[in-house]
């Protein structure tokens, strides 16, 4: 459904997107996970034809996006990161306007607006001006505005930014229902739990590059099946922590004052603790972490997602 090949985009000297490629099948939710500034929104802007890439190609439903832009635009719906609605207009008026710019006949559009407002649970507030809505409600209308023309592909660019947990759950339900209706979705976020819950496949993007992609299980396999033993030291003696990492017979990574060691906690922990005491390091806390996306991200980029 979506084929992206060697896409690059620079702004001056900054390479925002650096040769990314991926394929997305029909009905799939594909997550783009990365920190702010990783290149997710630039990718979405290229996929929605707002930015022309410096190089590379995009095919949507087997059609080249930049040679047949208008026909591609008709099959895509975009939910931008910002609340792109007219504050002074009501939800109904906003949806009517955004439907009309896609040329939807009035009667069909009115029915569609009615259905969508029911679907997102806001039919009771349809006459109220958007400025009176909560952040979460605005987000839901923001999504509805992208669905009016019944797109085959939906881009959701950080759709849960700044919303409360309850509204976030409502948005997850909406996305899951859209998937069940067969929509192909690209979902960008910097929240691990969102991609873990919603996405069939995930691409981890950092500094404009996809550093890893696959299903959640495939990504976890990248760091092995073993649990992580995470040691938090009472000392900030980095040299000693570094020394410990060198002498450990296991794969380990240092972040801040912590050492994450990939080992079997039942079998190997004793050996680890012996080496710690040999170096006179005192442990403030010890944690056992199952392989997760955060670990994968750390493994692939060398930094935590919130850095």
């Amino acid at each position: 459904m979506i084929k992206v090949d060697q896409l690059t985009k620079s702004f001056g000297k900054i390479k925002a997107v650096n040769g990314i490629s991926f394929n997305i099948n029909k009905g799939e939710i594909y997550g783009l996970l990365g920190p702010n500034g990783a290149g997710k929104s630039t990718t979405i802007n290229m996929l929605s034809s707002l930015f022309k890439p410096d190089s590379g190609t995009i095919h949507l439903n087997n059609t080249d996006l930049f040679s047949e832009t208008n026909s591609c635009k008709k099959i895509i719906g975009i939910v931008p990161q910002e609340i792109s609605l007219y504050d002074e207009l009501s939800a109904e008026e906003n949806l009517f306007f955004f439907g009309k710019i896609y040329g939807i006949p009035t009667k069909k559009l009115k029915n569609k607006i009615h259905d969508l407002l029911e679907f997102i649970g806001l039919s009771g507030r349809k006459k109220d001006a958007i400025k009176t809505y909560s952040g979460g409600m605005k987000r839901r209308i923001n999504i509805a505005a992208a669905l009016l023309h019944e797109p085959k592909i939906l881009f959701l660019d950080e759709p849960t930014v700044g919303v409360d947990p309850q509204s976030r759950n409502r948005i997850f339900e909406i996305v899951e229902r859209l998937k069940s209706e067969g929509l192909t979705i690209i979902y960008t976020t910097h929240y691990m739990e969102e991609v873990e819950r919603l996405c069939d496949r995930i691409a981890i993007i950092d500094e404009g590059k996809i550093v890893g992609q696959g299903t959640l299980e495939e990504l976890k396999k990248m760091i092995g099946e073993k649990e992580i033993v995470e040691l938090d030291f009472a000392t900030s003696d980095k040299e000693k922590i570094e020394e410990l990492k060198t002498i450990l017979p296991f794969e380990a990574e240092i972040t801040n004052n912590k050492l994450a060691i990939k080992c079997d906690k039942n079998k190997d922990l004793k050996e680890v603790l012996n080496l710690v005491s040999k170096l006179n390091l005192s442990i403030a806390d010890i944690d056992f972490v199952a392989p997760n996306l955060e670990r994968v991200f750390l493994h692939l980029t060398g930094k935590e997602l919130r850095d």
């Binding site: 707002l50 792109s84 504050d87």
Partner: peptide, 13 residues
Amino acid sequence: ENGTLKRLLYAPF
């Protein structure tokens, strides 16, 4: 500035 222009640009015209 408020992003609605972006939404207009998504439309096929």
